[in-house]
Design a protein around this nucleic acid. Structure first.
Length: 395
DNA sequence: GTACCTTTGAAGCTC
DNA sequence: GAGCTTCAAAGGTAC
């Protein structure tokens, strides 16, 4: 990806990530610049509101096709073609100080933006939310996200790890400074964690664009992957912050026990006498996942949607409507997140979690069809895995 | 209780 | 190397 830094040969990020999007987007923008009118904007808003309302009313329209219909209708209209104009309109309307809707349920920490004049708080966009999410935190916070990703790091920041391909784990101690949170999850955080630039985000309100705060919300304020050396016995940071990349194998996800005792001893719940379950180290989030994590609450607030499938469709369209620069930020975040994940869990591989969700389903299907015959994939996994751990139900 | 839906991107896997 | 599969998040929905 040309606009991203070369990373000193770091190949973690896909180099061709946005090439196709670039061509398409540029053509669309040319069209939009000449075709857009205020009336179009009103129509667009109306249609998008209807779309969200339809999604809320499964009785009226059922199935994903409903959303898809709206997607086909306005996917290439609502923002790709009107982005710049909407930006201008919105800026005029609220003086460029769009107030992002509150991320309900997310605790915030207001931090001054050192990149703003006088280091004062910006009207809204420099609010850096600090979150202790129920499912953990996000690396994006640990990785000070700003245009610094594309520029030399400011002196008060740790050097970009991408430029340290041979960083050893002990060097990650530098990262600990980002994680020195009190048990409450809110503490002093480097001001550099706010986004340096205040980009105008392209979309809001269920698809049409409005400028709003560019600050990363809570989800991106802290890393999902705190330094492993700082982890407590059960994947917990000494501060009490749960380790986001290490999750118990219980609950929604059906990952098997994960043999990573070096990072976390079995998480013991006081009331549970069952055999403690070893946590699972999750995959690092990709750029779009980071974007979704950040924007989900906003979409929910704007569209009053709750169904994740519909929200994700909106987010997917918004993602495509982002400019290359805006997307590049998330690609860079994702790249850094992968880097940090690699440093924290050098022996981890996506293979560790590969096939664990769907294997059971396949096995069930094969069991029903062929009388308990093992799937080829299961056989492969067992052959390749160093020490297969049987699922609890098997035991 | 669990799978599914829905999105994009990264990585694993198969051929 | 191409193409396919799986997982990552999220929460409502369906079974």
């Amino acid at each position: 990806m040309p606009q991203l830094n070369g990373g000193g040969g770091d190949d973690l990020g896909a180099n061709d990530e946005m090439i196709s999007f670039k061509d398409e987007g540029e053509q669309d923008e040319k069209i939009q610049e000449s075709a857009f009118t205020e009336r179009d904007l009103a129509d667009l808003k109306s249609s998008l509101v209807n779309e969200s309302e339809i999604s809320q009313n499964p009785g009226a329209v059922t199935g994903p096709g409903a959303v898809r219909r709206g997607q086909q209708d306005d996917q290439r209209v609502y923002s790709d073609k009107h982005r710049d104009h909407l930006d201008d309109v919105s800026k005029h309307q609220d003086g460029g100080a769009y107030k992002a809707p509150a991320y309900s349920g997310y605790p915030f920490l207001m931090l001054p933006d050192p990149y703003l004049p006088n280091g004062s708080m910006s009207p809204s966009s420099n609010k850096v939310s600090v979150v202790q999410q129920p499912h953990g935190m996000h690396l994006t916070s640990l990785l000070p996200y700003s245009n610094d990703h594309f520029n030399p790091s400011p002196p008060h920041l740790p050097a970009d790890m991408s430029q340290k391909p041979s960083v050893h784990r002990h060097q990650s101690q530098d990262l600990s400074g980002f994680y020195s949170l009190p048990p409450g999850g809110v503490g002093q955080i480097s001001p550099s964690m706010g986004w340096q630039s205040q980009p105008v985000y392209p979309i809001s309100s269920c698809g049409f664009r409005q400028p709003y705060s560019s600050s990363l919300p809570s989800s991106s304020s802290y890393s999902r992957f705190p330094h492993s050396l700082m982890l407590g016995p059960s994947g917990m940071h000494p501060t009490g912050i749960p380790h986001p990349a290490i999750v118990p194998s219980t609950g929604k996800h059906e990952h098997e026990q994960y043999d990573r005792n070096m990072y976390a001893k079995p998480h013991q719940e006081p009331k549970r006498e069952k055999e403690p379950k070893k946590p699972v180290i999750k995959k690092p989030l990709n750029a779009f996942m980071l974007y979704m994590k950040e924007m989900r609450a906003k979409v929910i607030a704007e569209c009053t949607l709750k169904e994740s499938a519909a929200i994700n469709q909106i987010l997917g369209r918004r993602w495509h409507a982002l400019t290359r620069e805006e997307q590049a930020k998330y690609y860079e975040l994702a790249r850094k997140e992968r880097q940090l994940h690699m440093q924290l869990y050098p022996s981890w591989s996506a293979r560790d979690n590969y096939g664990k969700k769907k294997r059971r389903k396949r096995e069930k299907q094969q069991d029903s069809s062929s009388g308990g015959k093992r799937s080829a994939f299961a056989t492969f996994k067992e052959d390749s895995a160093p020490a297969p751990i049987l699922p609890m139900e098997v035991l």
